[in-house]
Amino acid sequence: MTTDPDLDLTLLRLLGPGEPEVDCDECFELLDRYVDLELADEPAEEILPGVRAHLAGCPACAEEHESLRALVELDHLS
């Protein structure tokens, strides 16, 4: 958006992703599929559109996505 990463982050928080997105409940319903698709190198966003945009706009859901992905990756390593 601008040449300033800090300002870009503030603008993202204020203005959101600006594209179609699922809501928090829908994100939670899809999150397990989304993570398994990501870790299988499948096109998760094509199969489950709107999740990526929501994760960009919702810090809480994004944190839970990061944690789920990290935990499942840990399982794959063990």
């Binding site: 397990d32 993570v35 398994d36 499942v72």
Partner: peptide, 12 residues
């Protein structure tokens, strides 16, 4: 999805 992935999200 895998059952464990589905279950994990509730705990997280």
């Amino acid at each position: 999805s895998r059952f464990t992935t589905w279950a994990y999200k509730f705990a997280l």
